[in-house]
Design a protein around this nucleic acid. Sequence first.
DNA 1: CTCCAAATGCAAATAAGTTGCATTTGGTAT
DNA 2: ATACCAAATGCAACTTATTTGCATTTGGAG
Lengths: 137, 137
Amino acid sequence: MEQRLKKAGLKATRQRIAMMRVLAEQKGHAITAEELYEKTHSQTGVDRSTVYRSLTSLEERGLVERMDRRDGSACYCLAGQEHSHLLMCVRCQKTVPIAGCPFHQMEESIGASTGFVMLGHTLELTGICPECAAKHC
Amino acid sequence: MEQRLKKAGLKATRQRIAMMRVLAEQKGHAITAEELYEKTHSQTGVDRSTVYRSLTSLEERGLVERMDRRDGSACYCLAGQEHSHLLMCVRCQKTVPIAGCPFHQMEESIGASTGFVMLGHTLELTGICPECAAKHC
DNA sequence: CTCCAAATGCAAATAAGTTGCATTTGGTAT
DNA sequence: ATACCAAATGCAACTTATTTGCATTTGGAG
């Protein structure tokens, strides 16, 4: 972890090392800034604002990926891990994961045409689940 | 507009008709709840909370589509309109639209396999733009 | 024309994230 | 080793988008 941070041009602080470790433990399951704060605050006494600021730096350096959620919060996972996307019912908020992610190839061609270094993406599909569609009207 | 609202099982109020009109005028360019509030408040005196509550109802009935943004806000457009997606630089926040949307076909097959009535999706790609990548380190 | 569930307005609350500023610290240069 | 400074942190106050409780109004079915 320490090496990864330094190679990315960031200081390897106690707080950041703890954050990276916690994210690694999630094995690709993204967690919110608040959850990350709770898990690292107990170990290091880190402040909430530091968690937010570090997540921004880590994302800018390509070490973590961020996905925005409908409730206005965001969640984070270590970059480059296997992941899937969610289909959410706009009525009951239930979510169902959909198999596979169609972007590994697509990102390459988009990066090539725009000159961007591709880091990640957010994708969420919305619809009405069978149960809600059945209810009233 | 009145007919569309009634057909969806919603009351055709002065406020909602104004909202639908404003959204229609945007021709597929999504606007925030706040922008919609500003544009409709002057005409109808509608309250912010009504705008938010109506947007939720309109989305649930499939009349509008919502896309979440990284700053924690969301934006809305009339459902079923032509749209594209954004590629954003995580350093300077500059965005570049990418051509076409790969989901018109994909949504059908996902709907078929999950039983959901598909309404829309959020997709945002992130990366580092050529200018930022060139700067320092 | 009546009626009531749905919709609205108002005001207060919440949740997530941000910012200013004083202090500390990692790691490079001496 | 030691000093040094930009980067990182802690703390507290703030902002912004959105939500909620509750009393009042209203669209549209009967």
